[in-house]
């Protein structure tokens, strides 16, 4: 066991972990941050994406000890200080960018990382950026729409509205 210290969603945290403890297990277990999901265990599906020092990483493909001293942000840290939804979160809700919701935290975190570097991505750029986030429900259409909307760009109206 080794002690690890990091900041998660702005709060300093520490805990004893084994060398093999994955960051995702540290977040979900001792920290109780179960919004970060494990979808595949093989670092493909992206349900576990969090930010480490501002960059999107798969928390199932990183050891907790590797995040020593890092600033970690999870889906639980994405809302505004007053508890209202952040822009991306609100856009996913409003544009139906989710169904079963299991991929949603990872999608939101990936979208945030994209918009940080590329505030007005094209549809093609969004598609390419989300290559490592699998959604089995939506067919991705509304997810792309939500990210376009969150970046302040026009979104084609939903046909039935």
């Amino acid at each position: 066991m080794s002690n690890v210290t990091m900041k998660v969603n702005g709060k300093p945290v520490s805990g004893d972990v084994e060398g093999r403890t994955l960051l995702v297990d540290f977040l979900r277990g001792p920290l109780g941050l179960t919004g970060t999901h494990v979808g595949c265990d093989t670092s493909q599906c992206g349900a576990c994406v969090v930010h480490v020092n501002g960059e999107a990483v798969k928390a199932c493909a990183m050891f907790a000890l590797e995040a020593e001293g890092a600033e970690v942000r999870t889906i639980e840290g994405m809302a505004e200080a007053d508890g209202s939804l952040g822009t991306i979160q609100a856009a996913f809700q409003e544009h139906h960018g989710l169904q079963c919701g299991f991929c949603t935290p990872g999608m939101v975190m990936s979208a945030a990382a994209l918009l940080k570097d590329n505030p007005k991505p094209s549809e093609a750029e969004i598609r390419e950026y989300l290559e490592g986030n699998i959604c089995r429900c939506t067919g991705y259409h509304n997810i792309v729409k939500a990210i376009l909307a969150a970046s302040g760009q026009d979104v084609p109206a939903i046909a039935a509205e």
Partner: peptide
């Protein structure tokens, strides 16, 4: 290579 999160690590 891989996807953005993989490329960051």
């Amino acid at each position: 290579i891989g996807d953005p999160a993989v490329r960051n690590r």
